[in-house]
Design a protein around this nucleic acid. Structure first.
Lengths: 341, 341
DNA sequence: GATTTTCTGATTTACGTACCTCAAAAACTG
DNA sequence: CAGTTTTTGAGGTACGTAAATCAGAAAATC
């Protein structure tokens, strides 16, 4: 039979109240007594029944997700996952609220974060945009004792408790590796399309990409990055223009969103002339393009994992646990047409 | 505030006992009354507090994992994950036991399964080996009302409730795709090393591999598969011999275990002469080999995911829920040196 | 040794659900 | 209509923990 608090009390020769004090870190227990209880706990192999504890506590955690109201598939995916978490939240004694903010707007984000403080939620997760206002707002949250996690896009050098997202530098390196190898020894140019170099994720991906290109694939000539603001129409235009101007483009790395436009442009190219293409995020568009051989590989970060990881970390923080880094690392998934999930 | 059973009773104008009868499918409720209660449940948006329910039930699920006592890194990983689950199991009202059996031995496996029946656990997970005895034993388990999940290796055509493992056919296809592209247009031979063609996983991987090789990379000449019984020493020998005999081997697919031996053999080859290598399972060996550029890509199935998925499915089965296939699909991970976790 | 402070014990209530018993009411049966 | 069966109500106990109160014991301080 699983040992309970009663067993500990009996085994340690103390009362239930003392066991409770030890278990929940309440004051008023002499050092020796505390040790005796801890001894009993470990020798009996007691583990707190989390279900019963939560039931008794009756406390529900309240978290706020601040998300950009940005309509690319990936962000929609993130929102969907948060909603899914909300619908599960009843069973998990968690209350989650979504606050939407305009994308890429540091001031608006900071404003939203500041408005959250008076509500005193237990934790906040948000997609970071760089800016001193954001740093200040984050500090305000921490001062109020609120756990903070950045999601998808990080805010390095800040006091966030955790970043739930991928290592974008590594993602860029991976893309370069794939693209370099898939082009198979041929010489030629590589085009890179980004959303905006103002966004940290994109900058980091580009850095990693260029680093590996330089190290391992000097035969390939990487064109200056083209920014298309994650806009499908603009992306289509930019890609078409580049392919028209440089017929020797043999590889394409799309490190942002707007893939719909890119796919559209690629479809215009004769099959034999198509470059090798690596893109980010497995969405309806990229999935179809993979199946059609318009895209050769897709790097993906699992939105569900990110959201659930963020919630787990927030809960852990509130309960005073530390993050197990290895467990919360978000993987960079590689999908070819054959291993699409 | 979250509605409770009391709220339902009040809202439906019935007693708590009646609500309980409806919620738990107990008999003795008139149809009209039952409908009234269900109406109240859905209009209040009641969701059962699982924690409280489990606490009240006090029931613990008992599962048995039947695993081959086979000492390759992957199986060790699986065992470790089961042990990890066991150490967590206290908190999750689950009791998990491991039974070890000799590998690739249908009779021994069947025997072990038969011996489990009298214990009447709620569920059993096992790594399938093909054989009519196994089918019979599985039927015995099902007859006893025990939920059954196959792990890593499936037993198609049987009555198992679920298979927690990857699509090995797709894995083989993925390997071929990577190998074909990584060899970059060059002609040459491809060597394939398997553990044993008697194991379904390996057969399926090979099938998928050969299919894509035939479809898309006819320029590559795939040598007859070499079986090395997942034995490192034998693998080293076989690989060395093949590389010596056919200097034009430009690609190597290791679809089983024994990678330590393969890496050993590869280390002997001059850097420029090394073939492109795709292997399975991210272990200490393959991880190091990836970092050293001895292996170019590793396909991986996450042992932790598989074990946890198996447990989730078993629990779900016991509680009478159906499996959400999409949620339990185990992914084929691709790792290059840049995106190793 | 008296007083204050710090510990400890005993006991109680609550959380939300499951499950049990017994009695009463309502619905059928002939 | 009486008798039988089915349905419903009322109430209680249990699960394992949290959290609180209050009294009493032990230790520290003067």
């Amino acid at each position: 039979m699983k040992p309970t608090v009663y067993d500990i009390a009996r085994s340690a020769g103390v009362s239930l109240a003392t066991v409770d004090r030890v278990l929940n870190g309440r004051p008023g227990v002499r050092h020796v007594t505390r040790e005796r209880v801890e001894q009993a706990i470990s020798s009996l192999g007691y583990v707190r029944d989390v279900a019963a504890a939560n039931l008794a506590k009756g406390r529900t955690y309240s978290f706020v997700f601040v998300l950009p109201n940005y309509d690319n598939s990936f962000m929609i995916g993130i929102r969907d996952e948060v909603h899914a978490a909300i619908s599960r939240s009843g069973a998990e004694r968690t209350q989650i609220r979504i606050v939407e903010v305009p994308p890429f707007d540091a001031a608006a984000l900071a404003d939203a974060l500041n408005h959250i403080v008076p509500d005193r939620p237990d934790g906040v997760a948000f997609v970071a945009v760089e800016g001193h206002e954001v740093h200040a707002a984050l500090a305000g949250l921490k001062d109020a004792g609120i756990a903070v996690v950045t999601l998808v896009s990080d805010l390095p050098g800040s006091e966030r408790d955790h970043f739930a997202g991928i290592d974008n530098h590594a993602a860029g390196r991976t893309a370069a590796n794939l693209l370099g190898r898939f082009t198979g020894g041929r010489d030629g140019r590589i085009a890179v399309i980004a959303g905006s170099m103002l966004v940290r994720d994109h900058r980091e991906r580009l850095e990693g990409f260029l680093a590996v290109m330089g190290e391992s694939f000097a035969r390939l000539d990487v064109l200056p990055v083209m920014e298309a603001r994650d806009n499908p129409a603009l992306t289509a235009e930019v890609v078409s223009a580049a392919l028209g101007r440089y017929p020797d483009i043999i590889g394409l790395y799309s490190l942002g969103a707007g893939n719909r436009g890119m796919v559209h442009a690629l479809r215009e190219v004769a099959r034999e002339a198509r470059p090798v293409v690596v893109a980010h995020e497995l969405t309806g568009t990229t999935r179809a393009a993979l199946a059609e051989d318009l895209i050769d590989a897709v790097l993906n970060q699992d939105a569900g994992h990110e959201v659930r990881s963020a919630i787990r970390v927030l809960k852990g923080k509130v309960e005073g646990l530390s993050v197990i880094a290895a467990q919360e690392r978000i993987r960079i998934d590689i999908f070819l047409k054959d291993n699409m999930p």
